[in-house]
Design a binder for these strands. Structure first.
Length: 933
RNA sequence: GCCGGAGUGGCGGAAUUGGUAGACGCGCCAGACUUAGGAUCUGGUUGGGAAACUAGUGCAGGUUCGAGUCCUGUCUCCGGCACCA
C-alpha cells in the first residue's frame, strides 16, 4: 500500500487497484454471494412454515424500471437505495418487510430496437433484464428475488389479461361502483336468475321494466347495445394521432408540432376503432379518495387538476327554423344573458345539419382543415382564433334572442357537449374570438363595488374608461363597476340579466340553474377534463387482448384460454397501414371458422397497473394474488396498502392514476381489500450532471453507476447518493463528493483493521474487549437515536453526517471498544451493508462473543439509552440585548435563578451592560440568558 | 398566463416549539508523517477588520427580549400545466 506505487503523474486508471483504501472489490461480491446463497432477504408469506404472524408488515416499493439497453443510470439507485435502507432498517426493527423488484418490459423502445437490429424483442428484453438484474445485485439491494416479476412473462401477463376481462365484464352501477356485467345482463332478460341481488338497484329495475315492455323485434339489438356500452372496457372510434411511419397511434404527449416525438414523422388525425377504459366513471372517487393518502400535496393537486372537475350547468338552445336543440356546458350559467353567439366544435354532429347553403363550402373547408390538425397544433395556434359562421341561429332561452352559430376549433369535441354559448364580455377566449370576427359583446357582470370606506378605485382613467353602473337602466342604485373595453372574468354582480339583476355570481348561478331545471331547459352538471383511457396500440410487443370478433361483435375468450400468447412472428414490423402487426400472423388471427382475434395490443401502462399486487404472491398460478397474501401485505387499516412507494415525479399523473383506477375496480369486485394501492408516496429528485445540467448522452455528462462501483465500491455509491442532499430534491452529481464518503468508509474500516507492510489487512490491535468510555458511549447512543429517527423521516443525509461525527469520536480513541464498534456497524449496515457485514465478520474472528453471529441484517436494531445522552454540564449562551457576549458551562440541574446569577457575574456581560440595570432577563434553561438593558 | 417548489459560505447542504446561523461533506489554506503525495492524520476556513468588534440566510418592511424560522409586500430561479367553456 505504501510502497511500489506507480509514478504519480500519468498513472493509468487501472492502477487504482493498488490505491484502494479498503478492499471493497473483494468483500462486496463475496457478501452479495453470501446473501444470495442464504436467501438472506427471502420474505415468507402467510402460510409459509417460517412466517411469523406476530410481526407487523412493511411493504416498501420502488417504481420498477423499464430495462433499457443502456443499463442503469445513477438516478435509479437513488430511490432504490432509499427504500433499501428503510427496508433493512424495518427488518432489523422487527417488521416483516416486503421489498421486491421487477421489470416493466413491454413497450415501444424494445420493439423499435428489435426492428433496427433484427432481433426479436423477447431476446433483447431478456438480455436487458439480465443486465439490469446484475447491476442491481452489484449494489447489494435486499430484494427478495423469488418475487421478481416481469410484465412480459406469460405467467404474469396471463393475469394482466385476466384483469382486462374483469374490466370488460363489469359496469358501473348508480352508486359509482364496479359490478359484474352479469347483473345487467340478468336485468335485461325475461327470466332474471339473480333478481334478489339487484332488486334494490333502481337503475337495473328500470332497465328490466323497460326491457320487458319493449317489442321483441328491436329489443335484442338494444340489449346488446346497452350492455356493450356499459362495459368498463369498450370500443370507440374517436379520432386519434396516427403516425403512418411508426405504424401506431400516439398519445398526445408523444406528438410535438404535428410530428412524432420519436423520429419527427408526420402525424395525422383519423378516427380509428379502438379499445377504451371507462376511467371517467371513477373521476369523482379518484379525486375524493386522495384525501386519505400520505402523498405530497403537489402530486395530489396535480391529479385533481388533471381530472379537472368543474361544476356548471347544461343549457339547451333551440335552433331557429330547425327542429334541433344544442346542449352546451357552462360553468357560468349566470352569464346566460350575455351570450351573443354560439360555437360548435368542428366535429360536432349538428354542424352538417345546421349549415346553410351559402355557408356550406366555407364550413366544409374549415372542418376538413381542423380535422387534419392534431390536438397539439390546435393548441399551438391558440392565440390566433379561427372559425366559420354556419349561417344558422340559436335562440337564447332566457330572452328569445337569436344568436349566430359558429363553428371553431377552439371548442373541443371531447369536453362537455362539444358546444358552447359564447359570452365574450366574461370569457377571454370568447372575447378574442368576438373581437376578431366583430361579434357583439354584452357585459352582464359588474365588478363589485368595494365595501366603503375605501380609497381604492378600480376605474382606469382616460376617455374610454369604464364607469359605475346600475343593475339595469331603470334602477338608480350603483351595484358595481363595468368597463366595456375589458373582458371581466371574475365574479361580481349580475346586471342586464332580467330576473338575475343585482345578484352576486354564486346566487345568480343557483337561481338560473333552478329556473332552467323548472322549465326543462337544462340542469346543474359536473364535468371532468379527464377522458376515457385509450387502451389499444398497434404494436407487437404488448399484451394481446383476450377478445375475439364475430359478425362485427366482440366477446371475451374464456379464462381457461389465458394466457393468450402473442404469435411468434419473424416479421413484426409495422404494416404501414393502421392494421396492427399481429394481422400478419394469419394462423393466430383465426380463432374459429367464423371468429378472429382482436389485433391490437395493450399499452405499456397495463403491466404496471397492478405489479405491486403480484409481488405479494408472485409465484401463484391459481390466482393473480393469493387472498391471504393480499390481505396481509396490502392490509393494515389504512386506505392504501403499500406502506411506502418511491419513484420519480414523471409518473405523477398517468401511472398513478391508472393504477388507482384498476385498484378501485378490483376493490369493488372484492378482489383486493383496500380502496387505494399506495398509502405513502415519495418522489425522489432528479440527479443532474456535474455541470448542473440534466444528464444526457449529448451533453456527455452521464455518470455510469458501474464506473462508480468499480472505482469506489457499491457502499460508497449508496452512501453518496443518500448524502447528496434531501431525497426529494434536485441535486447535481459530484465525483469529489463520492470520494468524501469513500474516505469516511475507509476511516470506518480502519477502526477495525490495520495493514502491514505487505499491504495485508488484519484485525487491529487497538480493537479490544473493553467497555466504552463515557464520551464514546454518548456519541454512539446519539448516533443510534438520530439515525433511527432520520431513517423514518427519510433524512438520510443527516443520518450519515451523524455517523461521520461518531466515527471521528471513535478515531480519537487509543483503544477501540469492540462491542461499541459492533453496535455502530449495526447502525451503518442499512446504508453500507457490505462493509458492515465484513467488519463484523472480522471482529468475530477475534471476539466471537462480541460480534453479531451471522448477518447484521438479521440483527436487532440497537436501542439507545437516554441516560447515556445526558451530560453533567451544558453550555449556556449569555446575550445582552439579543447579542451574544459570553458563554459558560453550567450544571445541567442549575435553576433559572442560578443561571441568571452566573450570567450577571460574567465580566463580559457586565462590560456590555455598561452599569445599567437590567429591564428584563429571559432565561431559557440549558440554552441561553438574554439580558435587556 | 395558471399552478406548485425553492432562494443560507467558493460548492452540495445542516439548523426541535422562534433561542449560539453555516452541522456534515467537497474545495481551499497551514502543519505532521514522508525520497515523494493525488495516501493518511491534525488544525483552520461566511464577508470586512491587526484586533476589539461589526455586517450577514434573495430584496424592503413588520411582530418579538430574540427571526433563516412568524406576518405583509416584492424580485429571481426551477418544475409542471396550458383554448377543458
Amino acid at each position: 500500500m505504501t510502497s511500489d506505487r506507480p509514478s504519480p503523474s500519468f498513472a493509468p486508471p487501472m492502477s487504482s487497484e493498488q490505491r484502494k483504501a479498503f478492499p471493497f472489490s473483494e468483500f462486496e461480491p463475496k457478501w452479495q454471494d453470501v446473501w444470495e446463497a442464504r436467501k438472506a432477504f427471502r420474505t415468507p408469506n402467510p402460510g409459509d412454515a417460517d412466517f411469523d404472524a406476530t410481526k407487523p408488515k412493511f411493504f416498501v416499493l420502488d417504481m420498477f424500471p423499464y430495462p433499457s439497453g443502456a443499463g442503469l443510470h445513477v438516478g435509479h439507485p437513488e430511490g432504490y437505495t432509499a427504500t433499501d435502507i428503510i427496508g433493512r432498517f424495518k427488518k432489523m426493527s422487527g417488521f416483516n418487510v416486503l421489498h421486491p423488484m421487477g421489470w416493466d418490459a413491454f413497450g415501444l423502445p424494445a420493439e423499435q430496437y428489435a426492428i433496427k437490429t433484427g432481433q426479436h424483442p423477447r431476446a433483447t428484453t431478456e438480455k436487458n433484464i439480465e443486465g439490469f438484474r446484475g447491476q442491481l445485485k452489484r449494489l447489494g439491494f435486499a430484494y427478495d428475488w423469488d418475487r421478481e416479476v416481469n410484465t412480459t412473462d406469460p405467467g404474469y401477463f396471463k393475469w394482466t389479461q385476466w384483469i382486462f376481462l374483469k374490466l370488460y365484464n363489469s359496469y358501473v352501477n348508480d352508486e359509482g361502483k364496479a359490478r359484474p356485467i352479469a347483473e345487467l345482463e340478468d336485468a335485461l332478460s325475461d327470466n332474471p336468475k339473480m333478481i334478489d341481488q339487484w332488486r334494490s338497484n333502481g337503475t337495473l329495475m328500470a332497465y328490466h321494466d323497460c326491457y320487458k315492455n319493449s317489442t321483441s323485434g328491436v329489443r335484442d339489438d338494444t340489449r346488446a347495445q346497452i350492455i356493450s356500452e356499459a362495459r368498463l372496457a369498450f370500443v370507440s372510434s374517436a379520432p386519434v394521432n396516427w403516425c403512418p411511419e411508426l405504424g401506431t397511434v400516439l398519445a398526445n404527449e408523444e406528438v410535438v408540432d404535428g410530428k412524432s416525438e420519436v423520429g419527427g414523422f408526420p402525424v395525422e388525425r383519423r378516427p380509428m376503432r379502438q379499445w377504451m377504459l371507462r376511467i371517467t366513471s371513477f373521476a369523482q372517487r379518484l379525486i375524493d379518495e386522495l384525501d386519505g393518502l400520505d402523498w405530497p400535496e403537489s402530486i395530489k393537486l396535480h391529479q385533481r387538476n388533471w381530472i379537472g372537475r368543474s361544476e356548471g350547468a347544461e343549457v339547451k338552445f333551440k335552433v331557429a327554423g330547425v327542429d334541433e336543440t344544442i346542449a352546451v356546458f357552462t360553468t357560468r350559467p349566470d352569464t346566460l344573458f350575455g351570450a351573443t353567439y354560439m360555437v360548435l366544435a368542428p366535429e360536432h354532429r349538428l354542424v352538417d345539419v345546421l349549415v346553410t347553403e351559402e355557408q356550406a363550402t366555407a364550413v366544409e373547408e374549415y372542418r376538413e382543415k381542423a380535422g387534419r390538425k392534431s390536438d397539439m397544433e390546435r393548441t399551438e395556434l391558440a392565440k390566433d382564433k379561427s372559425g366559420v359562421f354556419t349561417g344558422a341561429y340559436a335562440i337564447n332561452p332566457v330572452n328569445n334572442e337569436q344568436i349566430p352559430i359558429w363553428t371553431a376549433d377552439y371548442v373541443l369535441m371531447g369536453y362537455g357537449t362539444g358546444a358552447i354559448m359564447a359570452v365574450p364580455a366574461h370569457d377571454e377566449r370568447d372575447w378574442e374570438f368576438a373581437i376578431k370576427f366583430d361579434l357583439p359583446i354584452k357585459h352582464v357582470v359588474a365588478q363589485p363595488k368595494p365595501s366603503a370606506p375605501c380609497l381604492w378605485d378600480p376605474r382606469p382613467q382616460g376617455p374610454k374608461a369604464g364607469r359605475w353602473v346600475f343593475a339595469d337602466d331603470t334602477k338608480s342604485e350603483i351595484i358595481g363597476y363595468s368597463d366595456p373595453n375589458v373582458c371581466y372574468i371574475g365574479e361580481g354582480i349580475a346586471r342586464k340579466s332580467g330576473f338575475l339583476d343585482g345578484l352576486p355570481t354564486l346566487e345568480a348561478k343557483r337561481k338560473i340553474a333552478a329556473w332552467l331545471e323548472e322549465k326543462g331547459l337544462g340542469k346543474g352538471t359536473i364535468n371532468f377534463k379527464l377522458r376515457d383511457w385509450l387502451f389499444s396500440r398497434q404494436r407487437y410487443w404488448g399484451e394481446p387482448f383476450p377478445i375475439v370478433w364475430e359478425d362485427g361483435n366482440h366477446r371475451s375468450i374464456p379464462e381457461s384460454e389465458l394466457p393468450l400468447l402473442p404469435p411468434t412472428l419473424e416479421d413484426f414490423k409495422p404494416t404501414g397501414t393502421p392494421e396492427p402487426p399481429l394481422s400478419k400472423a394469419t394462423d393466430w388471427v383465426r380463432y374459429s371458422a367464423t371468429a378472429t382475434r382482436e389485433l391490437n395490443t395493450m399499452p405499456q401502462w397495463a403491466g404496471s397497473c397492478w405489479y405491486y399486487l403480484r409481488y405479494c404472491d408472485a409465484q401463484n398460478s391459481e390466482r393473480f394474488v393469493g387472498e391471504e397474501a393480499e390481505k396481509y401485505w396490502m392490509g393494515g387499516g389504512k386506505p392504501g396498502g403499500v406502506d411506502l412507494y418511491v419513484g420519480g415525479t414523471e409518473h405523477a399523473v398517468l401511472h398513478l392514476l391508472y393504477a388507482r383506477f384498476w385498484h378501485k375496480v378490483l376493490f369493488d369486485l372484492g378482489y383486493v381489500s383496500t380502496p387505494e394501492p399506495f398509502q405513502r408516496l415519495v418522489n425522489q429528485g432528479l440527479i443532474m450532471g456535474e455541470d448542473g445540467q440534466k444528464m444526457s448522452k449529448s451533453r456527455g455528462n452521464v455518470v455510469n453507476p458501474d464506473d462508480v462501483v468499480q472505482e469506489y465500491g457499491a457502499d460508497s455509491l449508496r452512501l453518496y447518493e443518500m448524502f447528496m442532499g434531501p431525497l426529494e430534491q434536485v441535486k447535481p452529481w459530484s465525483m469529489k463528493g463520492v470520494e468524501g464518503v469513500y474516505r469516511f468508509l475507509a476511516r470506518v474500516w480502519r477502526l477495525v483493521m490495520e495493514v502491514d507492510e505487505e499491504g495485508v489487512w488484519s484485525v487491529s490491535a487497538k480493537l479490544q474487549d473493553v467497555p466504552a468510555n463515557k464520551q464514546v458511549t454518548k456519541a454512539l447512543h446519539e448516533t443510534i437515536k438520530k439515525c433511527g429517527e432520520d431513517i423514518e423521516k427519510l433524512s438520510f443525509n443527516t443520518a450519515i453526517s451523524q455517523m461521520m461525527i461518531c466515527t471521528k469520536t471513535f478515531t480519537a480513541e487509543e483503544v477501540m471498544p469492540a462491542s461499541a464498534i459492533v453496535t455502530f456497524l449495526k447502525v451503518l449496515s442499512p446504508f453500507a451493508p457490505h462493509i458492515a457485514d465484513d467488519l463484523n465478520a472480522h471482529i468475530a474472528t477475534k471476539f466471537p462473543a462480541l460480534a453479531v453471529d451471522g448477518l447484521l441484517s438479521d440483527a436487532t436494531w440497537p436501542k439507545y439509552d437516554p441516560a447515556a445522552l445526558i451530560e453533567d454540564e451544558v453550555e449556556v449562551v449569555f446575550q445582552v440585548n439579543g447579542k451574544l457576549r459570553d458563554k459558560a458551562r453550567v450544571p445541567i440541574q442549575a435553576t433559572k435563578d442560578e443561571i441568571e446569577k452566573i450570567a450577571l457575574a460574567s465580566a463580559r456581560v457586565q462590560e456590555f451592560m455598561e452599569g445599567k440595570t437590567p429591564k428584563k432577563i429571559i432565561v431559557v434553561p440549558g440554552k441561553l440568558v438574554n439580558i435587556v438593558v
